[in-house]
Amino acid sequence: MSFLTYLINGISLGSIYAIIALGYTMVYGIARMLNFAHGDIIMVGAFAVFTAVSTLGMPPFIGLIAAIAICTALGLTIEFVAYRPLRGATSLAVLITAIGVSYLLQNLALLIFGSNTRQFTSIVTLPNLKLAGGKMTVSSVTIVTIVCCIVIMIALTSFINHTKTGQAMLAVSEDRGAATLMGINVNRTIAVTFAIGSALAAVAGALLCSMYPSLTPYTGSMPGIKAFTAAVFGGIGSIPGALIGGLILGVVENLSKAYISSQLSDAIVFSLLIIILLVRPTGILGKKIQEKV
């Protein structure tokens, strides 16, 4: 029974990684940049929910909507101020700028909220689920997280396949130059990608802190790195890849925490990443790009 509990918790953690990884993977696929600040947008989202619910006393659902709005606006602002002027610059320059943005967000949060750990109250108020005649308890957060992940995946896939903006995103990720020639507004498409990624980060932040209720200005950085790993794992740029990568990462992390060593779980996850990349250099579902001379 305990194995099943660990597995379900792993899937739930993996779902959060998958939601975060979507932000990484979409931005990478379309803008060809590693958005290192993505992890800190999760933290901002969690703080927004915390302020709305615990300080202002709003209902959790309204708090979540407010957090999504704040993060979307933040993502758009960052894209406009810091990343758009660097379009056409080397990818390393963009990477360092993203690191700068990440430091900026962390330190702003440190100034506003202080370095104390905050106790986050779960946004999910449903009762826990008892299975197998009360032998096994699955917390409601776990189930809500998994459901959220499935809904987001379906919504995002149909958005990309069935709307004009979604098709434009595909076109830009395929060939930016050709997309411009076809009359697609590349800047607008990239901005939409950032908006979606940041909105998802807000959801991920709320769910993450509902599961692990301690909140500090550095809360987002490690899950951010893990989700980035998950995105690379599944093949960066691929949406189903983000889901698969996130789930594998979450399950492996939780099982190794339970059965091997809680201190070594990160090392095990990262070793798995290295092994996968050595066998499949572009991740599980990554496209192999033929090099042209």
């Binding site: 990478y28 590693l34 990818s91 790195i225 980035f228 790993t229 690379v232 960066i236 201190q263 070594l264 990160d266 090392a267 990262f270 070793s271 990443l273 290295i274 990349l277 050595l278 250099p281 572009t282 991740g283």
Partner: peptide, 21 residues
């Protein structure tokens, strides 16, 4: 053998493994 961003993430992973061990 890996290229660009993949190399970056693998080296990052390696650094974290060393620290963990």
């Amino acid at each position: 053998r890996l290229k660009g961003d993949y190399l970056a993430i693998v080296t990052l992973a390696f650094g974290e493994i060393i620290k963990n061990l």
